[in-house]
Design a binder for these strands. Structure first.
Length: 813
RNA sequence: GCGACGGUGGUGGAACGGUAGACACGCUAUCUUGAGGGGGUAGUGCCCAACGGGUGUGAGGGUUCAAAUCCCUCCCGUCGCACCA
């Protein structure tokens, strides 16, 4: 009978499900592996990126299960978010209905791939039970001052009608809809991720060699630690007066204290309080006020595009070391959100300051030797025009000047981060409600834990205009948890990235406990960290940074024990491409996984995705290469007729023919390679290639025992990749014996009667010799010389190198 | 500009410093004598006077008996960040 994937795959999928074959065991004395592929958003259908993601994870999970590890390999649904609301607007379906029916459909799709997920640990993040515990964490974070509410300038996407976190703004546009982001002043909830900036940066070191260096670099840049000097510029007496005595001065931060004698002006962000005060009291020309206001309304990207612009504010400050009077400008390139929104400007040693100074004819003062007139010199050198520091190397001066400031109590050495706090408020319906109440007398009050979850109302009207929760006639009415008076429920919902920040702990928590706690410490102690995490590079910052932060925060507020990092090892898979471009519906270059499985079966789909490229690289789709993968499985299936015994045979290696020996060697080469592939390199493509080579070599001989051994091992090796066909062949041929435990590599099979060696003269390959495997070095060299006699004529052999089992190199002159 | 990762046949990709191009796709020839499909066999980096030889891993240098691999300089590509003081 020929290979019929549909029949085989259906049979095994039913069987696995009936046997609950992939449930983790409760016995915590067992050695564990936690293999996790990032959970999908239930968009409606699986795409090839999912197939790749889950094929990789499943291969690892099945491998470790076969090595007798206790394996946790769960799946769930990242189920809150905008698309559900968009679907509601478009087709009038309720987001909940849309989401859960998508989940049902996609679960079937995943099943049809034969993925070895635990069925009992599945959940959706929109389940009220999940929301309940998340709300508890949020309240606790508020109590521990990790969460706060504040009114500030936020990124607003008018298309999505919601606020976005800084991490969700890509080149000034919304990460989801690509609409240009606006700035808006409004209240919101923030998680104090900055409190963990240093720990998040430091602990990246623990992940070196285990996470892709690219991701580590991206996170490190994002956190953006820099060290320098912070000090106050005091306003001159006249300026103080001008500002009505409301300001003494302003703070600046610099990483270049060594250039402090070169300061010729200072610059404030348009949002700086002093600028606001000047505008408020109309102490600037009407025209200037208008322009500054216009800049305030621009996004950072718009400001960058606009080029440098600034205005003399007509006030001055006193240089802390020279006591010179220095003008204060407003400049559009100064960011309000970093370093206090004010800078000292050294045009001679900073390119931005130079550009600005040139544009507005501000004075230049060189304080570091090197470079040339008419440009900013940012390199190292010796200080000049810097009083007592003249002649000092600038790297030393940095330290010395900070010390001076500290001694004179003028400023201090300090550290700054680019990382900003995580804004988690979203003005949308389909998310977890933020469990707070606004009371007229008590202010902001967290909901009582026993009242959780604060669930979403079902009867909402979703139009895309405004916040559906806010528009709901009654939902927000409640009583104050503190004083009992009439109060209003918070209508913001949590960013969906909050849900994906702790799901790895929820899976680890035994489902029997899901009703009684959010996270079980004991279970987490056993299962975490995730031994291998697999997902797309697009989450390098967003999700992976938030989840790392959440882990540390949950630890500090007592929900988990001493866990430093949630994900021990990370594999970022490449994208699936078609004709060099990312597969997408809008481009119409997609391959539908359902159709692929229908035509060739899940095993072919899985084999192709793992064979066509190493998992970390991009995968170029190729229809005829899929055919090739299918062809291989057909061939493998057909060879079952060659098998003559139902167990791993004992073979007298020395009695075999050359072809038989070679076939065994190829089979065991693949076996030897497999450990490295499954545990270290994940180069599944090379393991599959080795299995193909082995089958090709088996085809060149016809010894029943060699065939039996070969099939026994090949189906063992490929089972994590193509589980159905291997389970089928293994059951039929070997009573499934080869799918449990390890198979030992036999060294004897690598012994061949003769060895083929390449012979090179001066490193150039000239001939090939066949020598007995027992041949001595001298014998090999003399035979080698004979084979390349014509290259040695008239020359002296000055050196002879024999690389065992590989080649001979003769160096001649 | 800063950071990370790459550059190997027609294509996807292999190569502990040791025979470059494994494995697969594609292509050519041929057999399976209707076609189509499927399968088998042989060939397939490039160049040349072609049973032989030359050359070859983005370019150029270096280290080494030996370099795709290590070091230096440069070029190109992909991704991320980007006026962060």
């Amino acid at each position: 009978m020929s290979y019929n994937p549909k029949e085989i795959e259906n049979k095994w999928q039913v069987k696995w499900s009936e046997q609950q074959a992939f449930e983790p065991k409760d016995d915590k004395s067992l050695e564990k592996k936690y293999i996790l592929s990032m959970f999908p958003f239930p968009s409606g259908r699986l795409h090839m990126g999912h197939v790749r993601n889950y094929s990789i994870g499943d291969a690892m999970a099945r491998y470790y299960r076969k090595q007798n590890y206790n394996v946790l390999h769960p799946i769930g649904w990242d189920a809150f978010g905008m698309p559900a609301e968009n679907a509601a607007i478009k087709n009038g379906r309720h987001p909940k209905d849309w989401t859960y029916s998508n989940i049902d459909y996609m679960r079937k799709e995943l099943n049809s791939l034969g993925l070895s997920f635990s069925e009992t640990r599945e959940f959706a993040t929109c389940d009220e039970l999940y929301t309940k515990w998340e709300q508890e964490f949020i309240i606790k974070m508020y109590e521990e001052k990790l969460l706060y509410r504040e009114s500030t300038t936020v990124n607003w996407c008018n298309e999505c009608q919601t606020v976005l976190a800084n991490e969700q703004v890509e080149e000034g546009c919304c990460w989801r809809c690509d609409n240009e982001v606006e700035l808006k002043e409004m209240p919101g909830y923030y998680l104090d991720i900055r409190k963990y900036a240093d720990e998040l940066l430091e602990d990246l070191k623990l992940l070196e060699g285990k996470w892709p260096s690219q991701v580590l670099a991206m996170q490190s840049n994002w956190i953006g630690k820099s060290q320098g000097l912070e000090f106050t510029f005091k306003l001159s007496e006249s300026s103080k007066e001008k500002l009505g005595g409301k300001f003494e001065g302003f703070d600046v931060f610099t990483t270049r204290p060594d250039t402090i004698f070169g300061v010729t002006y200072t610059a404030l962000a348009p949002e700086h309080p002093i600028v606001k005060e000047l505008i408020k009291n109309e102490l600037l020309d009407a025209e200037v006020i208008e322009k500054i206001t216009a800049i305030s309304n621009m996004t950072e990207v718009e400001r960058a595009k606009a080029g440098k612009e600034g205005f003399d504010l007509g006030i001055t400050v006193i240089h802390p070391l020279t006591n010179e009077e220095i003008p204060v400008w407003m400049a559009n390139f100064v960011l309000a959100s970093y370093g206090g929104g004010a800078v000292m400007s050294v045009p001679t040693h900073d390119e931005r300051d130079f550009e600005f100074a040139t544009q507005y004819n501000l004075p230049l003062k060189y304080v570091i030797e090197g470079g040339e007139e008419g440009e900013a010199y940012t390199g190292d050198g010796v200080l000049i025009n810097s009083g007592e520091f003249n002649g000092m190397k600038n790297s030393d001066a940095k330290v010395a000047i900070i010390k001076l400031f500290e001694e004179k109590n003028l400023g201090r050495g300090t550290t700054n981060y680019k990382l900003r706090n995580w804004g988690v408020s979203r003005q949308r319906y389909w998310g977890a409600p933020i469990p707070f109440v606004h009371c007229k007398s008590c202010g902001l009050v967290p909901e009582k834990v026993e009242n959780l979850p604060i669930a979403l109302p079902e009867d909402v009207e979703i139009t895309g205009e405004g916040n559906p929760l806010e528009k709901h006639p009654t939902w927000s009415n409640c009583s104050c948890p503190k004083c009992g008076a009439e109060a209003k429920r918070e209508t913001d919902t949590l960013d969906t990235f909050v849900q994906s920040s702790w799901y790895q702990f929820r899976y680890a928590t035994h489902p029997d406990k899901w009703n009684s706690c959010g996270i079980d410490k004991e279970d987490v102690n056993y299962w975490l960290s995730v031994d291998q995490y697999i997902g797309g590079i697009e989450h390098a910052i967003l999700h992976l940074l938030y989840a790392r932060f959440f882990t540390k925060a949950l630890r500090d507020i007592g929900f988990i024990d001493n866990l430093k990092e949630p994900f021990e090892r990370l594999l970022t898979q490449g994208m699936v491409l078609m004709d060099g471009a990312k597969m997408s519906k809008s481009k119409g270059n997609t391959v539908d996984p359902d159709a692929l499985i229908e035509k060739y079966g899940a095993d072919t789909a899985r084999l192709f995705t793992l064979f066509a490229a190493p998992p970390q690289k991009e995968l170029e789709w190729n229809d005829s290469a899929v055919e090739g993968a299918f062809r291989f499985l057909k061939k493998l299936y057909a060879r079952k007729s060659k098998v003559t015994t139902n167990e791993l045979p004992t073979i007298d290696h020395s009695s075999l023919s050359k072809e038989e020996k070679l076939a065994r060697a190829k089979v065991y080469e693949a076996l030897q390679k497999s450990v490295d592939v499954y545990e270290k390199t994940f180069a599944f493509n090379t393991l599959i290639a080795s299995c193909m080579e082995a089958l090709n070599a088996l085809d060149k001989q016809d010894n029943g025992l060699v065939w039996s051994e070969g099939m026994y091992i090949i189906t063992h090796l490929l089972e994590p990749i193509t589980p159905h066909i291997c389970a089928e062949l293994s059951e039929e041929l070997f009573s499934s014996k080869n799918l449990a435990g390890k198979i030992e590599v036999l060294d004897e099979v690598f012994e061949q009667d003769t060895i083929t060696l390449a012979v090179a003269v001066n490193g150039k390959r000239r001939a090939e010799i066949e020598v007995a495997s027992s041949a001595s070095k001298d014998e090999i060299i003399s035979q080698a010389k004979e084979s390349v006699a014509k290259w040695l004529e008239g020359k002296n052999v000055v050196k002879e190198i024999v690389v065992p089992n590989k080649m001979v190199n003769l160096v001649v002159k």
